[in-house]
Nucleic acid binder design. Structure first.
Lengths: 118, 118
DNA sequence: CTGTATCCTCGCTGATACTG
DNA sequence: CAGTATCAGCGAGGATACAG
């Protein structure tokens, strides 16, 4: 099972890995962690993301129960996205990664330099 | 900086995220954690990976200092791959993810079911 | 404001075959 | 045994324009 976890798309590990591997998803989690934001706010904060891709990302996250989509029937229309408790809990694993990254980035970069020198 | 971490390819977080998002890299770490293996052994254990992709994965990991490539000048040739201490330490973040996945998979799956029902 | 609808390109993956 | 070479195909992702 440990061996097969990348081949079964239904494997929990694979599932989470695919989401965490997506840079937009990680960014959304980090940006939404302080409170709900509207579509345009998200877009501006992230910067460089097209509306299509942002929509895709948010839809996927909503499907998986990571964010909720709150629609206010006003004019002009307003939609707010916020993290669910599940989405908030994702910060744990993400933190583990960013911490590791900050701790070891110098070593990784050094390895790359060394590889280039060859 | 927290906002920009996905756009700068040199950002440590982005760097690690890209590697962890790659299913083959994660598998290699998990499989090599008990000791060195040869190219063919890795291929057989992983199953379903082509030599080209396995080579690409191992080269990338070697560049980043995650694995070492030990060549024994024998006939027939023998090459062993093993995790560096840095590679071993990657198990921490990976564990954080797999743990989260196993803990929350039911909730995620439930959210998906609910989304489908709509 | 909050998205959809197209189109297009690019990189990655896998299949297959071949070499030192 | 341990790769390299080559090619084809697919799908994600971005640019742009438009709609409710």
């Amino acid at each position: 099972m440990r061996n097969g976890d990348a081949f079964d798309p239904n494997c929990p590990t694979r599932l989470v890995l695919d989401r965490i591997g997506d840079k937009w998803t990680v960014l959304v989690v980090l940006i939404l962690k302080d409170g709900p934001l509207r579509f345009t706010q998200l877009r501006d904060r992230i910067g460089g993301i097209t509306p299509k891709v942002l929509t895709q990302t948010l839809r996927a996250m909503a499907r998986d129960g990571l964010v909720t989509r709150q629609i206010y029937p006003e004019v002009p229309p307003r939609v707010e996205y916020s993290l669910t408790p599940l989405g908030h809990s994702l910060q744990g694993p993400i933190r583990a990664i960013t911490d590791w990254a900050e701790e070891n980035v110098t070593e990784v970069m050094a390895a790359r330099e060394a590889a280039l020198a060859e």
